Simulated scan of single mutants.
Amino acid sequence: MGALRPSTVLALALLAAASGTGGVAGQQPLDFERYRETIEPIFIADRGGWGPGRAPCVTCHAAQGTPLRLQRLRETAGGEVYWSEEDSRRNFEVVSRLVTPGDPDRSRLLRKALTVPAGGAALHVGGKFFESKSDPEWQAMADWVAAADPVERPAPPRLDFDFFRDCVQRMYLDKRPGDVECIHCHETGVRGFARHIPEGRDFWNQEESRGNFAITRRYVEPGEPMMSRLLTHPLAPAAGGDYFHGGPRRWDSTDDPEWQMLAAWVRGETPECVVGAEADAGGSRE
């Protein structure tokens, strides 16, 4: 076969770029301007009330350490709320981590508020806003995600169950001076990640630990300590914690050795176990 003429080579290169098979040059990323114009208004939209499924998304997501951690809204002299461009770019970075470019059905952002029969996630604390994928708002988000070319992303780190069983659960039982232990509020209900320990024992067995682990995972974003409610809910707001927590603030700072230990675990590491008084003393107890 003879060599291709320069004009043929150029034509093939242009065809590859147009079809998206030409590598990075042909990729279409998530569109920020379209996000700001079409997606962000959905987060502010009035839902007709307060409580799960009725309050605007921003009500919870600008105050709680969820994976969708939005910037707090600004307000004009006339009482209208808005985000600055800088705020929107920060929101865009967060939102981009919660979608799978090119694949709306695998995008966490789209599945959380969609009802289960329509293919949504099983749990969304804020309730369900979309009854079906034909909802105009859901479609707007789907079109935005679908317009971007697929991007390969590394798998999130694995949370070490053994470390959780032997160390993290000890924290649930530890009482800091003037506070109550986690188990005091979290031994029952949907947020019961520290279930009641049966009479005659002072710790959870393997099966019970697995149950606690399954619920705890709902409040952990592997690889992202500051997007994990397990770490932001009991953290002081001045240090980046959630604005509301029904229980006490266990950590005044992210420099707390116990918080640092949990952050390392969330990043997929197996750190030294440091709990409660051990953290205050800067050491650990085997």
Rank of each mutant, 00 (worst) to 15 (best):
E131H: 02
D143C: 12
G127S: 04
A146E: 13
A148V: 09
D135Y: 06
G127E: 09
S134H: 11
P136K: 03
W138E: 07
A148W: 14
K133G: 11
W144S: 09
D149S: 15
P117L: 12
K128F: 15
D143L: 14
S132F: 06
E137P: 12
K133L: 09
S132I: 10
K133D: 07
V125A: 12
A118S: 04
S132G: 11
D149N: 13
D135C: 08
D135L: 02
L123D: 15
A118I: 05
G126L: 02
G120D: 01
M141W: 11
G120V: 13
V151T: 10
A146S: 14
K128C: 07
A118R: 08
F130A: 05
P136C: 02
L123K: 12
K128M: 02
L123P: 12
F130D: 08
M141P: 14
P117T: 02
V116T: 11
W144M: 06
M141Y: 13
W138I: 06
V116H: 03
S132W: 05
A147W: 08
G119I: 04
P136Y: 08
D149R: 14
P150E: 07
E152T: 15
V145G: 01
P117F: 04
G120T: 09
L114W: 05
A121E: 12
K133S: 10
F129W: 14
K128E: 13
V145P: 07
P136V: 10
D149E: 10
V151I: 14
P150C: 07
A113D: 01
K128G: 07
H124I: 00
D135H: 11
K133Y: 06
K133A: 11
E152G: 13
A146V: 03
E131T: 04
H124A: 00
E137K: 09
V125N: 05
E137L: 05
A122S: 05
P150D: 07
W138G: 01
A146Y: 13
